[in-house]
């Protein structure tokens, strides 16, 4: 099974239509053009489907970059 972070990276590249290599540890809306409010909704929906989790509003406030998204999903999967 691929590691969680590889999956997240893959999904982000797909949703934001950028090469996989562009998704870095600190990637955030600051450096990915398509990561705007609509991009965020698309990303969250894709992640919820892939990992079979549900994000609350307060979760979303903490999902500010790649690393933080990874931590949030790990927390959700552990719960």
């Amino acid at each position: 099974m691929p590691k969680i972070e590889d999956k997240i990276r893959e999904i982000m590249a797909l949703v934001f239509e950028v090469p996989l290599a562009d998704i870095q540890e600190d990637s955030s809306p600051d450096d990915i053009h398509a990561w705007d409010s609509i991009g965020t909704i698309n990303l969250l929906t894709a992640l919820e489907e892939e990992f079979n989790v549900e994000f609350e509003e307060e979760d979303v406030l903490e999902m500010l970059n790649f690393q933080l998204i990874k931590i949030k999903i790990e927390e959700k999967l552990e719960a």
């Binding site: 970059n65 690393q67 933080l68 931590i71």
Partner: peptide, 11 residues
């Protein structure tokens, strides 16, 4: 916690 540090940096 690492998360707090990352969140602080991101914000």
């Amino acid at each position: 916690p690492q998360k707090v540090k990352l969140l602080t940096a991101a914000k």
